[in-house]
Amino acid sequence: MDTIEVERVVAVEERNWWYRERRHLVARELRRLGRPGTGLDVGAAGGGNTRVLLDRGWEAVAVDASPAGVEAARRRGVDARLGDACDLPFPDASFDFAMALDVLEHIEDDAGAARELARVVRPGGAALVTVPCDMRLWSAHDEALGHVRRYDRADLAEVLTDAGFEIGRLWSWNVLLRPVVRMRRRASTGCDLEALPGWLDRSLHAVVAAERALPVGALPGVSLVARLTRP
């Protein structure tokens, strides 16, 4: 992620519906894990998701390949390191939990990045991975963000299991808004990340938040989420 894109993310993520709900998703997964431990956020950009770990008592580190991302995270009080997702600057089995949220789609060697993520998680530890799904949704938005691919379930499952993870659950996210996203992306000419009027942001957040209680995870969505363990 380049400097301009990092600055764009930092500027909107606190008040943007998509980022807020993704932070809720992370918090929910952390509650499942119980007692806090050591955590790693790979591809952390400005550290917005890392702070979810910190706010819940985790000893967390952020890693990003962008100096701008590292600096932005440090300004927010996050322990951030410059590093490559395919060559993480940590020993084997360093963390109880690691996450790579919308990271693998940016990396040519996504298999190598997945192996590195598994390498730094201790046996018995956990991980969380999110990616955009379905190449039918490919658009100028993906190109502007530097995406290499969008995933289907089988491809993502193969990358993660080959890396050494066991998949506890693999589900779709942002399902209810997929028709809206698909129409939007057909007309997209670049990155769709922007601040929205308050009423629209609240409305979109209410729709995606409804998925917390609805059994829609097996339906086509805009993203895939994988809950993982390290044997």
Score class of each variant (00 low, 15 high):
7 E>M: 12
7 E>L: 15
8 R>W: 05
9 V>R: 15
9 V>E: 15
10 V>K: 14
13 E>D: 13
16 N>Q: 13
17 W>Y: 15
17 W>H: 11
17 W>E: 00
18 W>H: 10
20 R>G: 07
21 E>H: 14
23 R>F: 04
23 R>E: 00
24 H>C: 03
24 H>Q: 04
24 H>I: 12
25 L>A: 08
26 V>P: 07
26 V>W: 01
27 A>F: 04
29 E>Y: 14
29 E>S: 04
30 L>Y: 02
31 R>K: 03
31 R>H: 08
31 R>Q: 07
32 R>V: 10
32 R>E: 13
36 P>K: 10
38 T>L: 10
38 T>Y: 05
39 G>E: 06
39 G>F: 04
39 G>M: 09
39 G>A: 15
43 G>T: 08
43 G>F: 12
43 G>I: 07
44 A>W: 06
45 A>P: 04
45 A>Q: 04
46 G>Q: 05
46 G>F: 10
46 G>A: 14
47 G>R: 07
47 G>E: 10
48 G>F: 10
48 G>H: 09
48 G>E: 02
49 N>K: 08
52 V>I: 12
52 V>Q: 05
55 D>R: 15
56 R>F: 08
59 E>T: 05
63 V>C: 06
64 D>N: 10
64 D>F: 08
65 A>F: 09
66 S>Y: 12
69 G>P: 12
72 A>E: 12
73 A>T: 13
75 R>F: 02
76 R>L: 14
77 G>Q: 12
78 V>M: 01
78 V>H: 05
78 V>I: 14
79 D>Q: 12
79 D>P: 02
80 A>Y: 02
81 R>D: 03
81 R>Q: 07
84 D>N: 15
86 C>R: 15
89 P>G: 08
91 P>T: 08
92 D>Q: 06
92 D>S: 11
92 D>F: 05
95 F>M: 05
98 A>N: 12
99 M>S: 09
102 D>E: 15
103 V>C: 04
106 H>K: 13
106 H>F: 11
106 H>A: 10
107 I>T: 04
108 E>N: 06
111 A>F: 03
111 A>I: 02
112 G>H: 08
112 G>R: 08
114 A>L: 03
114 A>T: 05
114 A>M: 03
115 R>N: 02
116 E>N: 04
116 E>V: 04
119 R>P: 09
120 V>D: 05
121 V>F: 12
121 V>P: 05
123 P>V: 14
123 P>S: 14
124 G>W: 13
125 G>Q: 07
125 G>N: 09
125 G>S: 13
128 L>C: 02
128 L>K: 00
129 V>E: 01
129 V>H: 02
129 V>A: 01
131 V>W: 02
132 P>S: 03
132 P>M: 00
133 C>E: 15
134 D>Y: 11
134 D>Q: 09
